[in-house]
Computed example of a mutant assay.
Amino acid sequence: MEEAIARCLAEEGIKQEVIERYLSESRPFIFTKMKDRFAVARLNKVCEVAKIFESYVDPEMMYQAVGRSSMVFQA
Rank of each mutant, 00 (worst) to 15 (best):
A10V: 02
R37S: 14
K33W: 06
D58C: 05
S69Y: 10
E17Y: 10
G67W: 00
N44F: 12
F29Q: 15
I14C: 01
Y56E: 05
I30K: 15
S69W: 08
G13Q: 00
E48G: 04
A6P: 00
A4R: 04
V57M: 07
G67V: 00
Y22S: 15
I52H: 03
E17T: 09
A4Q: 03
F53Q: 04
F73I: 14
E25N: 14
I19K: 08
A10T: 07
Y63K: 06
R21I: 10
R7T: 10
F38T: 13
N44W: 06
E20M: 08
S55E: 09
E54M: 08
K35S: 09
E60P: 03
K15C: 05
M1W: 12
E25R: 09
S26H: 13
M1V: 13
G13K: 00
I19N: 08
S55R: 11
F31C: 10
A41Q: 10
I14A: 01
K33E: 10
K45G: 00
M61Y: 04
E11W: 00
F31M: 11
D36E: 12
F38N: 15
Y63P: 03
K33T: 04
A41F: 12
V57S: 04
A4F: 05
R37K: 12
E12K: 06
D58G: 04
E12C: 09
A39Y: 05
V49R: 07
R68N: 13
E20R: 13
R7M: 11
Y63T: 05
I30Y: 15
D36G: 06
S26A: 14
A50N: 12
R21Q: 14
K35E: 14
